[in-house]
Amino acid sequence: MTSLHLALTIDAHDPARLADFWAGILPLPGPDTQVGLRFAQSDGQRVGPNRVHLHVTSTSLEDQEATVAAALQLGGSHLDVGQLPEEGHIVLADPEGNEFCVIEPGSSFLAGCGRLGELACDGTRAVGLFWAEALGWPLVWDENEETAIQSPYGGTKVAWGGPPVAPKRGRNRQRFDLTVIDGDLAVEADQLVGLGATWLDEAADGAVELADPDGNEFRLGRGRR
């Protein structure tokens, strides 16, 4: 398949505020291997937990503490999802309630992945295999129904935790956004359908919306280098 650029679109009631928050946490736009974040205006209400949350890495305990302090100052908050006191990561929510974790230093799994170490997704092994094929990214983890992929050039990993997967309720407020680089969008859409995606709709700008094998909506649009 043609080269596809991956970003994560996050619906927000106040996209500018959310963009400012994440700009204060991450190096944005960041290196080429860091998955991009985009923020879209939406007045829809969140239903149930998100299927994606971000893992932000730390270089030291002081760096982890500084990242948490910055997040709280920018409007984030602590979040209790049942984590144990002895666990080293710190669970937070951004100003619109989207969960993310600040990972303690020394994580071998996220070593060398950069500041935005991982998109941690709720999903099946099948959807991990689909995205590996769709993006041309190799599997870097495939055990006990859990999968993870990473660009051949390194950077942010994308991982799926395997079953049980919570039922999908309504449209996801966080969605993958693919940009076709120097290729034919219609051909790419057909190839994605051939891999197991479902065609949903076509946008006014010519982009198309599809769903992956777990039913997660994603957008495929045109772009240039």
Rank of each mutant, 00 (worst) to 15 (best):
L185T: 01
V81P: 03
D20G: 10
R115W: 04
S58D: 05
I10M: 00
V165Q: 02
A40S: 10
G206D: 06
L110T: 02
E146H: 02
G161N: 14
R219L: 02
E96K: 02
G183N: 08
T147V: 13
E145H: 07
Q41W: 10
L119A: 04
R175G: 09
G106C: 12
E62C: 07
G206N: 09
K157P: 09
R17H: 15
Q41T: 07
T67W: 03
Y153W: 13
E143G: 01
S3G: 08
E202S: 08
T57S: 13
A71C: 13
R115T: 05
T9A: 15
D32R: 06
N144C: 00
A12V: 01
T57R: 00
L192T: 01
C113I: 10
P31T: 06
E96P: 07
T59S: 14
G194T: 03
P29G: 07
W22G: 00
I181S: 14
Q45S: 01
L54A: 08
L84W: 14
L110D: 14
D177I: 04
G162D: 14
V56Q: 12
S107I: 05
L135M: 14
G136D: 14
G221E: 08
G161A: 06
V187F: 12
D122I: 15
L210N: 09
F218Q: 05
E202Q: 11
V52T: 15
D80N: 10
N172C: 06
P152G: 05
T179V: 14
G97T: 08
L116F: 06
L178N: 13
E86G: 10
E118H: 03
D20L: 10
D63C: 01
G30K: 00
W22T: 00
C101V: 04
A12K: 01
G106E: 07
R38G: 13
W22E: 04
R46I: 09
D214S: 01
D214Q: 00
G221I: 02
S77P: 04
P167C: 09
E209I: 14
D122M: 15
D182S: 07
V193G: 08
F176Y: 09
L92G: 14
D190L: 12
W22A: 04
Q64C: 08
V91C: 13
W137C: 04
R224S: 15
W160L: 04
P95E: 00
L6I: 04
G215I: 04
